[in-house]
């Protein structure tokens, strides 16, 4: 009698626990995927209203024309180019290291000039406090001052300097992505180099969530803006 009471209820057999866990494991293996979605991020331009005024003419030297034809061949600034050369070409366009005449003329931003501009915009705003173009002007020049504070006096690309990408309807998507990738890579490498030189940290490793580093990101973007404009596609003419 005493023995029976000591035994109590028998232990639950845990032998099947492994089977249950395996079942769950296999269920999750089948229903889930591991791949994280990644890709080239782009902001499309807003649609142009029909009655919008024509954009002002831009100097030829300020536009880096990249054309891709139906056979996935590249024509850059009027010359046939291999995709492997595109990155260096873009870098030369954005930096203009030799000060060439037919490339964008970079202008040195000096502290004196920028502070002068800010002072004059502040004076304008004092007389017309609600004029939005003065407000935007002030914002723009203050951004430049911040950049000078972080990076020192720098060479600025003209505001009209732009990479213009145009493709054919029969260009393959693969080629388009490669061109986009090379253009982005050129800009990212320039930004990385500048960031490494000034802050000792790569641009791609700067965190937006940290206030100091966000300011650095904005400053570097001021020097090397990512301006890729895509034209409406050519319609292939069938003879």
């Amino acid at each position: 009698m005493a023995r029976k009471a000591k035994q109590g209820p028998g232990e639950i057999n845990a032998g099947s626990m492994a089977d249950i866990a395996f079942l769950l494991l296999i269920f999750f293996l089948v229903t889930t995927t591991m791949d994280t979605d990644a890709g080239i991020l782009r902001q499309l331009p807003p649609p142009i209203p029909k009655d919008a005024p024509k954009p002002p003419k831009v100097k030829d030297r300020d536009v880096y024309v990249v054309l891709v034809n139906r056979n996935d061949q590249l024509l850059v600034e009027g010359e046939l180019m291999e995709i492997s050369e595109l990155r260096e070409g873009t870098k030369v366009f954005l930096t203009n290291p030799m000060g060439a005449e037919d490339l964008p003329q970079k202008k040195l931003m000096t502290r004196g000039e920028v502070t002068e501009k800010i002072a004059s915009f502040k004076a304008y705003l004092a007389s017309e406090p609600n004029n939005s173009s003065y407000k935007n002007g002030l914002k723009k020049w203050e951004k430049k001052l911040n950049t000078i504070n972080l990076l020192g006096e720098y060479m600025e690309l003209p505001g009209s300097a732009v990479i213009s990408l145009r493709n054919d309807t029969e260009t393959s998507y693969d080629m388009y992505i490669q061109v986009q990738n090379e253009l982005t890579r050129a800009i990212n490498e320039l930004r990385d180099d500048l960031s490494m030189e000034k802050f000792g940290k790569k641009y791609s490793e700067l965190e937006r969530s940290i206030a100091d580093e966000k300011a650095m990101i904005i400053a570097i973007r001021q020097v090397f803006p990512q301006r890729i404009s895509e034209a409406e596609p050519n319609v292939t003419q069938t003879p």
Binding site: D37, A38, G39, I40, L41, Q43, L44, P46, I177, Q180
Partner: peptide, 11 residues
């Protein structure tokens, strides 16, 4: 007006 686009690619 859906202007944010990602061209999904492999690494």
């Amino acid at each position: 007006g859906a202007l944010k686009v990602v061209y999904s690619t492999n690494q």
